[in-house]
Simulated assay, not measured.
Amino acid sequence: MSLQLQFSRQIAGRNVTVDCDIPRGDCLALYGPSGVGKTTLLRTLAGFDRIDHGRIAFGAQTWDDGQRYTPVERRRVGYVFQDFALFPNMTAARQLAYAQPRQPTQSVEHWLQLTGLAAHGQGYPQQLSGGQRQRLALARALASEPDLLLLDEPLSALDASLREQLQESLAGLLAQTRLTTVLVSHDLGEVFRLAQHVLKLDGDGATQYGTPQQVLLQRGQYGRYQLTGRVLLLAPAEVQCRVVVAIGQETVTTLISHTEAAGLHVGQAVAVSLNGASATLTALS
């Protein structure tokens, strides 16, 4: 059963059109700057919001076509919110039991073990670390035995090193459970690590769909891959200038000549052409 998305809807005064078909077990990343409607699209898939035109379907079941509408509670969707939305008065084990269907196919202990929380089943959210709370929110979503897993920047509140560790854990979980997943992310590394497909949203309502390589890596001069970023720091030295560029939530540091640096300034949009261990910067208008 694939996730079929052929619809349009108004988001912040812009008409956003989505046209993609996600095979079962694959991950689709929604990528783009803040305010373009990524979370709104996630809420639309969950059933909290309605489409204007088109169709959302999972396998043979139509969830929304403008007339027929499957409510949230009948969509079998697991949702991990940015703030985790855990119940403060429930232990980890109780939260999972609460989320399970009436006749679960897996035990609470199974999900605790799978997410590395076997030793914390009797812990309350306030007793857990940030990474443990993130894994508990994910375990709760998995325990509901969904057809579709929705992740709204689940790792964005974590520091870089912990985020990288949990990306690895999440990649393993998605591979093991073979759940169809839609992920909202600002993190390029996260997108390339977890997603097979990307829907990129721009500020004018335009969308691009394809693999991460097709959508996020552009072929520049001499066939080198390019990414778009912004200059964070220009640090002149005696021979060369050190430049730090933000690309998504990642940074790239490279050395360029003073001549190349003369056309750049902090905040400048640049194309970053990757060539092995080095990077070439080109100012964008």
Results as ranks from 00 to 15, higher is better:
4 Q>T: 13
5 L>H: 06
6 Q>S: 15
9 R>H: 07
11 I>Y: 08
13 G>V: 09
14 R>F: 14
18 V>R: 02
21 D>F: 08
23 P>R: 09
25 G>T: 07
25 G>E: 06
41 L>P: 03
46 A>F: 04
52 D>K: 05
53 H>M: 12
54 G>S: 11
56 I>C: 03
58 F>A: 10
65 D>W: 09
66 G>Y: 00
66 G>K: 05
69 Y>A: 12
69 Y>N: 09
77 V>G: 04
77 V>Y: 02
84 F>K: 02
86 L>N: 05
88 P>E: 08
91 T>M: 12
92 A>E: 03
93 A>F: 09
98 Y>A: 10
100 Q>R: 06
109 E>N: 08
113 Q>C: 09
115 T>R: 00
118 A>Y: 00
119 A>G: 05
122 Q>V: 11
128 L>Y: 01
137 A>D: 06
137 A>S: 06
138 L>F: 08
142 L>K: 06
143 A>Q: 01
149 L>F: 02
156 S>Y: 00
164 E>I: 07
166 L>S: 05
169 S>L: 10
172 G>W: 05
173 L>C: 09
176 Q>Y: 05
180 T>R: 01
180 T>Q: 04
183 L>A: 02
185 S>F: 09
188 L>P: 03
188 L>W: 00
193 R>I: 03
198 V>K: 01
200 K>M: 13
202 D>W: 10
207 T>F: 02
208 Q>I: 05
217 L>S: 11
219 R>V: 12
224 R>K: 13
226 Q>P: 11
228 T>E: 12
230 R>P: 09
231 V>R: 07
231 V>Q: 04
235 A>C: 08
237 A>V: 11
240 Q>R: 13
244 V>R: 15
245 V>D: 04
249 Q>H: 13
250 E>F: 08
258 H>M: 09
259 T>F: 12
259 T>I: 14
260 E>W: 04
267 G>F: 00
270 V>D: 07
282 T>S: 15
284 L>T: 05
